[in-house]
Simulated assay, not measured.
Amino acid sequence: MNINKESLLQNICVIAKSAGESIIAIYHDMTNYQIRKKIDKSPVTEADIISNNIILSSLKNITPNIPILSEENPIPWDIRKNWQDYWLVDPLDGTKEFIQHNGEFTVNIALIEKGKPILGVVYAPALNLMYFASEKQAWKKTDKHIRPISCCQANPMSVIISRSHNNDVDKMNKFLSNLGEHKIIKIGSSLKFCLVAEGKAQLYPRFNNTNIWDTGAGQAVAIASGAHVNDWNGSPLNYIPRESFLNPNFLVST
Results as ranks from 00 to 15, higher is better:
Asn4Met: 07
Lys5His: 11
Glu6His: 12
Ser7Gly: 07
Cys13Asp: 04
Cys13His: 05
Val14Gln: 11
Ile15Tyr: 04
Ala16Ile: 00
Ala16Phe: 02
Ala16Met: 00
Ala19Asp: 00
Ala19Tyr: 05
Gly20Glu: 02
Gly20Met: 08
Ile26Cys: 08
Ile26Tyr: 07
His28Val: 00
Lys37Phe: 07
Ile39Asn: 05
Lys41Pro: 02
Pro43Tyr: 06
Pro43Ala: 09
Thr45Gln: 08
Ala47Pro: 05
Asp48Val: 11
Ile49Asn: 05
Ile49Lys: 14
Asn53Asp: 15
Ile55Asp: 01
Ile55Pro: 13
Leu56His: 05
Ser57His: 11
Ser57Glu: 15
Ser58Ala: 15
Ser58Gly: 02
Leu59Gln: 00
Leu59Tyr: 03
Lys60Met: 06
Asn61Leu: 09
Ile62Arg: 10
Ile62Ala: 15
Thr63Asp: 00
Pro64His: 07
Ser70Tyr: 02
Ser70Lys: 04
Ser70Leu: 02
Glu71Gln: 09
Ile79His: 05
Arg80Thr: 08
Lys81Pro: 04
Lys81His: 12
Gln84Asn: 15
Tyr86Asp: 02
Trp87Glu: 01
Leu92Ala: 06
Thr95Tyr: 08
Glu97Thr: 06
Phe98Trp: 04
Gln100Lys: 11
His101Asp: 02
Val107Asn: 02
Val107Phe: 04
Ala110Ile: 09
Leu111Gln: 00
Gly115Met: 10
Lys116Asp: 05
Lys116Val: 15
Pro117Asn: 09
Ile118Glu: 08
Leu119Asp: 05
Gly120Val: 08
Val121Ile: 14
Val121Cys: 12
Tyr123Gln: 06
Ala124Asn: 06
Ala126Pro: 08
Leu127Gly: 04
Leu127Glu: 03
Asn128Gln: 10
Glu135Met: 11
Lys141Cys: 13
Thr142Phe: 14
Asp143Arg: 11
Lys144Trp: 03
Lys144Arg: 13
His145Cys: 03
His145Trp: 05
Pro148Val: 11
Ile149Gly: 06
Cys151Ala: 10
Cys152Met: 12
Ala154Cys: 09
Val159Glu: 00
Ile160Met: 12
Ile160Asp: 06
Arg163Thr: 10
Asn166Arg: 13
Asp168Val: 05
Lys171Glu: 00
Lys171Phe: 01
Phe175Arg: 10
Phe175Gly: 13
Leu176Glu: 01
Ser177Asp: 03
Asn178Asp: 14
Asn178Glu: 12
Gly180Leu: 15
Gly180His: 09
Ser190Arg: 09
Gly199Cys: 06
Ala201Cys: 13
Ala201Gly: 04
Gln202Ile: 03
Gln202Cys: 14
Arg206Met: 10
Arg206Leu: 08
Phe207Asn: 02
Phe207Trp: 03
Ile212Trp: 10
Trp213Phe: 12
Trp213Thr: 11
Asp214Trp: 01
Gly216Ala: 12
Ala220Cys: 11
Ala220Ile: 15
Ala222Glu: 00
Ser225Trp: 05
Ser225Asp: 04
Gly226Ile: 10
Asn233Ser: 14
Asn233Leu: 11
Gly234Val: 08
Ser235Lys: 15
Ser235Ala: 13
Pro236His: 02
Leu237Gly: 01
Leu237Arg: 00
Tyr239Arg: 12
Tyr239Ser: 13
Tyr239Gln: 10
Tyr239Cys: 11
Arg242His: 03
Glu243Leu: 12
Ser244Asn: 11
Phe245Gly: 04
Leu246Val: 07
Leu246His: 15
Asn247Asp: 06
Asn247Leu: 09
Asn247Ser: 12
Asn249Gly: 07
Val252Gly: 08
Thr254Gly: 14
